[in-house]
Nucleic acid binder design. Structure first.
Lengths: 254, 254
DNA sequence: TTTAAACCTGCAAAAAAGTGCAATAAAATT
DNA sequence: AATTTTATTGCACTTTTTTGCAGGTTTAAA
């Protein structure tokens, strides 16, 4: 770790930071502070400025190169605060060493985002965006189940995925859903339904994560009944009366 | 730091400043004031004038040479203009109805971005980001070859991918590369090398897309020799002399 | 939960920059 | 050459920028 000249112009310093970021893909504020001989506050301010003009992605403790990081824009997610609560609760289901299967959607993505960085587990997914988010975690293994991609939901479907799923036995499956009522969960895309069915079959237990807004709605195609499922995670308190019909159907409410 | 003669004309002084800037890429107002024996106000005025006619870039505390690479423009990808040229040329290789295999990297991503929206073709890829980019095109079929994900490069690797690749015969494979020289193309990640080898085998013809900066460099692991390849696409003119060794090795230069 | 690191906010000191003005120097005019 | 005009320079002044630090808060990980 080498030092750099004293008395550096701000622009120079920021250029140096950008070089480091593009070279190593990630930098730590503490390291840069030492190398450039300025306080971490200064580095933080630099990183924030560079992030503001979109040169890099600021993260807790430092920054990441933009090209190697999937641009996750938390502010654009609908009902983020609810989804954060859901993510917190769902995360408690995941333990070290588990094999976990994940679907797509912003709620699942939020779950992945808040997973502890130390978690060591194996994740299977059919969603491109979930997979990219998983790539930010250093200690987990990510396996993408390939197939034909559905363009608007960016998940893979088709016989290939399903036959792969039939060979897998995971500890837990976590799915977002478009619609859930006391009859079960439903969707509108036939291919996606097939795959989600197979995912539920391939896991010992299944958790549904969804904002309460989607409770008591239905679409044309049935994915599964409530007794195919094990957990229901919403932003509501487990004792909320909106959830009692689901509790009575045998689901564990988080 | 040496002193300079007592009285100096403004034009002389500014010429001296430019010499310093071009020599050191940076100057401090305070230093110049000392060296030229004038007040910092004068120096500041000089720097502002020189900045106004575009001879240098004024920053807080001094000035920087115009050639100084503080110039991080809004482009998120490094060398975007070169990559756009490459993408345009590579796109001419793709025709309706083809089966095309794509690797990862920003050059390939740029290629996908500029593909005509009316193109009807089938694309296979191992790169999450390439796959996402492909999802923006309504008329193409995207098949992701799943496997274990490498977190840095966000591509899938492993036996699963390779055995799938062995079942495929594509018309064209387009790969970015980290390093190419007259011996062939090389990389540093063993798993990635295995997959890229299999991709080249699985396609009738292979095109390498790369900015010229990466020509004549090498890394530890060999992916393939030049006669495993068919096309080389850089931002240079096909007749550029840097490319003649590759042309002589039998590659078609675009 | 607890703890340590990282973060943000406001503040103050120092450096740098902008401003108006007067003194001086250079150029142009008579 | 003398005088007017114009440009340049330094100074005193205020404003802005940059930076580090103290505080309270948030986040990450044990």
């Amino acid at each position: 770790m080498h030092q750099v000249q004293t008395q550096m112009l701000k622009r120079e310093r920021q250029a140096f930071i950008m070089k480091q970021v593009n070279l190593h893909n990630r930098v730590l504020s503490a390291d840069l502070g030492m190398m450039l001989n300025v306080s971490e506050d200064t580095i933080r301010r630099d990183l924030n400025e560079l992030a503001e003009i979109g040169e890099l992605v600021k993260v807790h403790g430092g920054a990441l190169s933009k090209s190697y990081h999937y641009d996750y824009a938390p502010n654009t997610t609908y009902a983020l605060s609810e989804k954060t609560i859901i993510a917190q609760k769902a995360a408690t289901l995941i333990e070290d060493g588990m094999y976990v299967m994940l679907g797509g959607g912003t709620t699942v993505r939020e779950l992945v985002r808040i997973l502890p960085h130390k978690l060591k587990a194996t994740f299977f997914t059919i969603s491109l965006t979930t997979a990219l988010q998983l790539c930010d975690h250093p200690n987990i293994e990510v396996i993408f189940l390939g197939g034909t991609l559905v363009k608007n939901s960016q998940i893979s479907v088709g016989g290939e995925v399903i036959s792969r799923l039939n060979e897998i036995s995971a500890d837990l499956c976590i799915l977002g859903t478009n619609s859930i009522n006391t009859e079960g969960i439903t969707d509108s895309d036939l291919e996606a339904v097939q795959v989600k069915k197979a995912m539920i079959r391939a896991a010992k237990r299944t958790a549904i994560v969804t904002i309460s807004e989607k409770l008591n709605s239905a679409q044309r195609l049935r994915i599964g009944e409530l007794n195919d499922l094990d957990f229901l995670v919403t932003e509501l308190s487990p004792t909320d009366e909106q959830l009692t019909p689901y509790h009575n159907s045998g689901l564990i409410i988080l």
